[in-house]
Design a protein around this nucleic acid. Structure first.
Length: 206
DNA sequence: GCAATGATACAG
DNA sequence: TGTATCATTGCT
């Protein structure tokens, strides 16, 4: 673990991220994703659905055909965001997992809004202005990988950034939280992936 | 069922 | 340099 990563994650969380994506993905369910919006407000979101992309042998994984300018961050160390544009319109958010040169990632497919973080600086403004410039309505519709990135204002600027508060998008992992019940399903939109399309690498809270 | 919309990967 | 494809969404 290099110095930057050391200061960004606890050993326990970094050890989690260093595992294969199919191990990490279900453990992210029920945990929290936090987003600092341009107006400074911080939203808290519960992770409700994810998919695992498990390295170069996985035909559905972007890293399947080797390193390219788009997927290079997946070949780096765990704990970074992999963000890319799909269908010319939608940004997909992934967390890179597993060690360097083993390109795994977890795709975020669904979130639920939990709350606004109340800081001493903005508590007056939040209580008086209905949570600033971020649309409350937009934050109710987070069921879909393209919808959640739109609502959280996630785009290519986050690609390759560290999943820590310095990037404005980070995870809050409580390893003592009891494991929630979830179902395993096939991944979506990868019909081209032969036998890999049927593998149960999508995980959704029940 | 299918159009939108543009970056990407790969063929030639 | 051309073009088929795409880890999606929303409208008909």
């Amino acid at each position: 673990m290099n110095d930057m990563l050391k200061t960004s994650f606890s050993k326990e969380v970094y050890d989690l991220f260093n595992q294969p994506a199919d191990v990490v993905a279900p453990k992210l369910l029920g945990q929290h994703l936090l987003r600092r919006f341009p107006d400074g407000q911080v939203g808290r979101f519960l992770i409700s659905e994810v998919e695992a992309y498990v390295g170069q042998e996985d035909k559905a994984c972007h890293a399947h055909r080797g390193k390219t300018p788009r997927n290079v961050v997946m070949f780096g160390p765990a704990g970074f965001w992999y963000v890319y544009l799909i269908y010319g319109m939608y940004w997909m958010l992934n967390l890179v997992t597993s060690p360097k040169d083993d390109p795994h990632a977890v795709l975020f497919r669904g979130l639920k809004f939990v709350s606004w973080e109340q800081t001493s600086v903005d508590v007056d403004r939040v209580s008086s202005s209905n949570a600033g410039s971020v649309s409350q309505k937009a934050l109710k519709n987070l069921d879909g990988p393209g919808k959640l990135t739109r609502a959280l204002m996630i785009n290519k600027d986050l690609n390759g950034q560290l999943a820590s508060p310095v990037s404005g998008l980070w995870l809050e992992i409580d390893l003592n939280k009891p494991a929630p019940s979830f179902e395993k399903l096939p991944r979506v939109g990868i019909d081209y992936a032969d036998k890999w399309k049927d593998k149960l690498l999508r995980f959704r809270l029940l």
